[in-house]
Amino acid sequence: MEPNATTNENLNLYEKAENYTKTSFELIKLKTVSSSADALSTLTSRIAVGAVVAFFTLFLNIGLSLWIGSELGQYYYGFFIMALVYLIAAIVLHKMQHKLIKTPIGNMIISSILKDENTEIDPDLK
C-alpha cells in the first residue's frame, strides 16, 4: 500500500506544480497586457494633448508675428523677431539641457519604474 500512496502523492504534487506553472504564466501575461495597455493609453493621451498645444502655439506665434510686424510697419519683421526669440530659446535650452530636460526626465522614468516594482512586491514577503 505504501508504493501506491507515494505514487498518488507524487502525481498530486505534479498536478499542483503544473497548475502553479499555468497560473504563473497567465499572471505574467495579464500583467504584461495591463502594462502595455497603460503605456499605450498614456502615450495616446499625451500625443493628443501635445497636438492641441502644438496648434495653440502655432497660431499664437503667427498672431504675435503678424501683430509685431504690423506695429513695425512690415509683416515679415514680426516673423524675423519671433524666429530670433526661438533661436535664443534654443541656445538656452542647448546650454542647459542636462539641468532642464535630461535630469528631470531621467528622474521621472526611474521613479516610475521603482514605483511599479514596489507595488508588485507582496507586503507579506518583506
Score class of each variant (00 low, 15 high):
39 A>K: 15
126 K>F: 14
25 F>N: 13
97 Q>R: 08
49 V>L: 13
6 T>G: 06
77 Y>P: 03
42 T>N: 12
121 I>H: 08
101 I>N: 03
55 F>P: 00
38 D>S: 04
40 L>D: 09
13 L>D: 11
88 I>D: 00
61 N>P: 05
58 L>D: 02
55 F>Q: 05
71 E>P: 04
90 A>Q: 04
122 D>C: 08
78 G>P: 03
122 D>K: 10
10 N>T: 14
34 S>H: 11
45 S>V: 11
115 K>Y: 05
118 N>K: 15
34 S>N: 12
53 V>L: 15
84 L>G: 09
87 L>R: 03
71 E>W: 12
97 Q>D: 10
11 L>C: 07
124 D>I: 14
38 D>I: 06
114 L>E: 15
37 A>D: 13
117 E>G: 06
61 N>R: 00
4 N>T: 12
20 Y>N: 12
116 D>I: 11
4 N>M: 06
69 G>L: 06
34 S>T: 06
2 E>S: 13
108 M>W: 10
43 L>D: 13
51 A>H: 05
52 V>Y: 13
122 D>A: 05
76 Y>S: 11
43 L>N: 10
69 G>F: 02
91 I>A: 13
96 M>K: 12
123 P>A: 03
73 G>S: 01
56 F>A: 15
27 L>Q: 03
86 Y>P: 02
96 M>Q: 14
99 K>C: 00
91 I>M: 05
40 L>R: 09
117 E>R: 11
61 N>M: 07
19 N>G: 02
23 T>V: 07
46 R>D: 10
126 K>G: 10
70 S>H: 12
67 W>Q: 14
14 Y>W: 00
88 I>A: 05
121 I>G: 08
79 F>Y: 10
36 S>Q: 08
76 Y>K: 11
36 S>M: 07
61 N>Q: 06
90 A>V: 01
20 Y>C: 02
113 I>D: 09
84 L>C: 04
84 L>Q: 02
33 V>D: 03
33 V>E: 07
108 M>V: 10
69 G>D: 09
26 E>Y: 04
37 A>Y: 08
10 N>L: 13
124 D>G: 09
46 R>P: 03
1 M>K: 07
54 A>L: 14
8 N>A: 15
125 L>N: 04
95 K>I: 07
10 N>G: 08
9 E>R: 11
36 S>K: 08
34 S>G: 07
55 F>T: 12
115 K>Q: 14
83 A>G: 01
126 K>D: 09
52 V>R: 01
94 H>V: 00
54 A>Q: 09
27 L>T: 14
31 K>G: 01
52 V>K: 14
36 S>C: 07
119 T>V: 15
103 T>R: 09
6 T>H: 14
113 I>F: 07
103 T>C: 03
51 A>I: 15
91 I>E: 05
102 K>T: 13
23 T>D: 12
96 M>H: 09
30 L>P: 02
91 I>K: 09
106 G>V: 01
101 I>V: 07
69 G>S: 03
91 I>T: 10
